[in-house]
Nucleic acid binder design. Structure first.
Lengths: 214, 214
DNA sequence: CACTATATTCAACGAGCGTTGAATTTGCAA
DNA sequence: TTGCAAATTCAACGCTCGTTGAATATAGTG
């Protein structure tokens, strides 16, 4: 066989693990649940990915590099489009958010699950320290640099606080808790990422200007 | 004995459970860990609080009503202070955040743990649906009404999206992940709630105006 | 003091956990 | 077709989990 492609059993294990980890967290999921969801014996997950912790890492890393490189490309493309002139705040933020929007709307439910998993990792005091530095923190550095160019008089700490707010707003959106559906009586939908991102860009741009502007 | 006051064994169980649940989540904590942390037999936690799930609810509810009433009072006090005139956006947001700041800086480490637990519940797709409606969602309704008064031309959905961003920014701050310390090379500290709230108020006020303003 | 209710511990249960070594199946190469 | 390595399942291990019933300690009451 040697089939590790799309739809293979090892991929199905990753997909199911991704969905369950995103919903219940690392400790809320058992190897047997994952195996059952993938229609596979428990031992197979161990055979392919080692221990439960390694499986968790495998799930997280599978799409981390992909997403991170999309972000890098989006930021580069945005810089090119500005053609030498400094990018506007809105352009920078848009470039930062675009890959997430694309992933969400790719049609692949795996991406939606992954972004919910990312929100779980971002907000967890434990996993954050372990998983965020390796891949995502570097991209944030580039983003912060771009922001500094657009806000030349900003203090470093002001920018970082504002970045934390963006990060939090984003995480809660990716988490898909369904709370906005409830609070707005169905006027807003957690699943409506177009609306989420369209509102987020002017919101955080104005926030940055208010805190870091001249 | 009949001592259920501060420092009693049942209170110690709640305190330890609060800290561990906030750090590791519901499934990441065992009854035996809690008992050990409280220097108490496992069976005692069951005797006082019933099943593990009931203990979790007891931990969450212990401070939920307190915090929620503080919020109500802060909003009322802010409205009174405005003396008939419509409150400014900043005043409304300040009233919304003030109780959390007070709790954080109360010196009681239990409150810091509880707010991290609140962040965990807010961002969890599972617990959010179960625990947020009962106490906190109602207070949000009052907050949204106040915002509508300050932003008379705002659309309902705009306000709710903006509220979600505030909620996310707040949750990530309460979660105390330590990420801002890392990203800013120590310039900003997760534990510095004064800075967190002082930056957050102008940030979200400007965001609201940009999205919901005239 | 004796009585009683509450608080706390002790000891153990059955179930489910992650993990593993051996057996079996599968797919490809010779 | 035979041989071999990868993939998959089977069966079981030792352990820890949440929970419980009985035993013990503690504190207030008469």
């Amino acid at each position: 066989m040697t089939n590790k492609g799309k739809g293979s059993k090892s991929q199905r294990i990753l997909d199911v693990a991704e969905e369950l980890f995103a919903l219940h967290g690392y400790d809320g999921v058992t190897m047997r649940q994952i195996a059952k969801g993938a229609n596979v014996d428990v031992a197979l997950a161990n055979y392919h990915f080692g221990k439960k912790l390694d499986l968790f890492y495998a799930v997280f890393n599978r799409r981390a590099e992909v997403l991170s490189s999309w972000r890098r490309e989006a930021l580069l493309a945005s810089r090119e489009k500005a053609a030498g002139k400094p990018q506007t705040l809105e352009q920078i933020i848009e470039a930062f958010l675009l890959p997430l929007k694309v992933a969400q709307e790719s049609g692949d439910p795996g991406w939606r699950n992954y972004l919910a998993l990312l929100a779980y990792v971002m907000t967890s005091p434990i996993w954050n320290k372990i998983l965020m530095p390796e891949v995502f923190d570097k991209r944030v550095g580039e983003f912060v640099e771009a922001l500094k160019s657009a806000l030349p008089n900003a203090r470093d700490d002001d920018i970082h606080w504002c970045y934390q707010y963006v990060s939090g707003a984003l995480a809660l959106t990716l988490a898909q808790t369904g709370r906005i559906d409830r609070l707005s009586d169905g006027t807003c939908l957690s699943s409506d990422f177009d609306a989420a991102y369209d509102h987020m860009i002017p919101f955080v741009a104005a926030g940055f200007r208010a805190v870091c502007g001249d």
